[in-house]
């Protein structure tokens, strides 16, 4: 497997799964669980040997395939706020906080398009997203209106 082949596998799953039925979905879940357990064990073994340096972790987090699989199994080395902030970089949206119950509060001028997909792709543990559109303390428009009273 080279390059972007894994995306084709992922796309194949998207095509096959809807027709797989209850047992098929359970099989996929079970196989994924097995591989997830393997990934976790691998990380533990590396960690016990002090092999998970910042450099290694960044490399794992920076690889779309590895990071994606680690996210599937809740094993991503960076916490949710870090991942979200990184993904929001350059979008004009900023992260206010991630609450304990998984609500992601964002600040933006207006609600960005596809923000749900962006957040869920880097932080699937987020349960809901609240976008707070910042308003100036005194709306500029009000300066031009003479109060009627």
């Amino acid at each position: 497997m080279t390059g972007n082949d894994w995306r084709e596998y992922a796309a194949r799953i998207d095509v096959l799964l809807p027709a797989a039925g209850e047992n098929g979905v359970e099989l996929v879940r079970t196989v994924a669980d097995l591989y997830g357990a393997g990934l976790e064990r691998m990380l533990e073994l590396l960690h016990e040997r002090d092999a998970l340096t910042d450099e290694v972790l960044d490399a794992l987090a920076g690889d779309d395939l590895v990071a994606g699989l680690l996210l599937v199994h809740g094993l991503h080395p960076h916490d949710a706020p870090t991942r979200i902030e990184l993904a929001l970089h350059g979008t004009g949206v900023s992260l206010i906080e991630v609450t304990e119950d998984g609500v992601c509060r964002l600040r933006a001028q207006h609600k960005p398009r596809d923000i749900e997909q962006l957040i869920s792709s880097v932080a699937p543990e987020i349960t809901s997203i609240v976008v707070e559109t910042a308003k100036p303390l005194i709306p500029v428009s009000s300066l031009y209106i003479r109060p009627s009273s």
Binding site: R7, D14, R29, A87, L118, P124
Partner: peptide, 15 residues
Amino acid sequence: MNDSLSTLRRVVRNR
């Protein structure tokens, strides 16, 4: 980030 693995994530999360 590309979101190719969203299906797998959903399957693993939605038990």
